[in-house]
Design a protein around this nucleic acid. Structure first.
Length: 208
DNA sequence: CGCTCGATATTCT
DNA sequence: GAATATCGAGCGA
C-alpha cells in the first residue's frame, strides 16, 4: 500500500488537515514473529500553525516537547496531556513557516478491530477511536512513537491513501481559547465515528 | 441522563 | 500557581 510523501505535508496545515480526511492511519503491532495491522479511516482532524496561530504548541518557539513540529514534515508528534492522555499529530507546514502539525482526532476503525477492543476494554465500535485520547489508546500510541516517519509504509505508525471523503465540514477547534475564531477543525460529517460533543458543532457546518 | 471532578505532563505566568 | 489540542468514573435528579 502506498503512502502520501513528504510534499503532501509541505503545504499550509489547514490544507493538509482537510486532505487527511479519508486517508488511512495504520499502526503495525508486532508480537514475537507475526505482525498485525490496526487501522482506520481518518474522519476528524485539526490544523495547528506556528506564530500565526495562538492555539499552537509552537506559538512561542521550539521547546523540548514541540521539537517535532519544527523538524522534517511527515513525522509523528505524540504528546501527553491532561495528565492522562496521548495525542497524535503529523508534522506539516508550508514552506514559509518554521513549524506546524495536524492533530488526528478520530478514525473509523477498519482493521484489527478486535485488537482495539482489547486495548480499550470497550465493545461499542463508536467508542473505540472517536476522540484523540481514545484513538491513541486503541492504536497503542505512546511517546515511544514520537518522531517516527509517517510517510514510510515500513514504520510502525504511518498514513496510507484511503478512500474519498464524504461531506467535509470545517468548524472551530475543540478545547482551545486562543485563536478560537479559526475554523481549522475538519470532519467527514457523513461519518458516524465522530465524538458526540464535536458532532453537535458540525450540525451547523461551514461546508467546504 | 447531565454535571463535576480527578489524573498530573508540559509550559507559561 | 494556572491553563491545557481529554476522558470517564461517580454522583444526583
Amino acid at each position: 500500500m502506498n503512502c502520501p510523501g513528504g510534499s503532501f505535508y509541505l503545504r499550509p496545515t489547514d490544507i493538509v488537515a482537510q486532505e487527511l480526511i479519508g486517508k488511512k492511519l495504520v499502526r503495525t503491532v508486532r508480537k514475537s514473529s507475526n505482525e498485525c495491522r490496526v487501522a482506520g479511516i481518518i474522519v476528524e482532524t485539526e490544523a495547528y500553525g506556528h506564530t500565526d496561530d495562538g492555539a499552537s504548541h509552537a506559538r512561542m518557539g521550539p521547546t523540548g516537547r514541540n521539537a517535532i513540529m519544527f523538524g522534517r514534515v511527515g513525522k509523528a508528534y505524540v504528546y501527553f496531556t491532561y495528565g492522562s492522555h496521548y495525542c497524535v499529530n503529523v508534522s506539516a507546514r508550508s514552506k514559509d513557516r518554521m513549524a506546524g502539525a495536524v492533530l488526528i482526532r478520530a478514525i473509523e476503525p477498519t482493521e484489527g478491530i478486535e485488537v482495539m477492543k482489547k486495548l480499550r476494554d470497550v465493545n461499542d465500535p463508536f467508542f473505540l477511536a472517536s476522540g484523540p485520547g481514545r484513538l491513541t489508546q486503541a492504536l497503542n500510541i505512546t511517546s515511544r512513537l514520537n518522531g517516527v516517519d509517517m510517510t514510510d509504509p515500513d514504520s510502525d505508525l504511518h498514513i496510507e491513501f484511503g478512500r474519498n471523503p464524504g461531506r467535509l465540514a470545517a468548524t472551530p477547534r475543540i478545547g482551545i481559547s486562543r485563536a478560537a475564531e479559526k475554523k481549522w477543525r475538519f470532519v467527514d460529517a457523513s461519518s458516524l465515528y465522530i465524538s458526540k460533543r464535536t458532532r453537535s458543532m458540525s450540525d451547523d457546518p461551514t461546508v467546504n
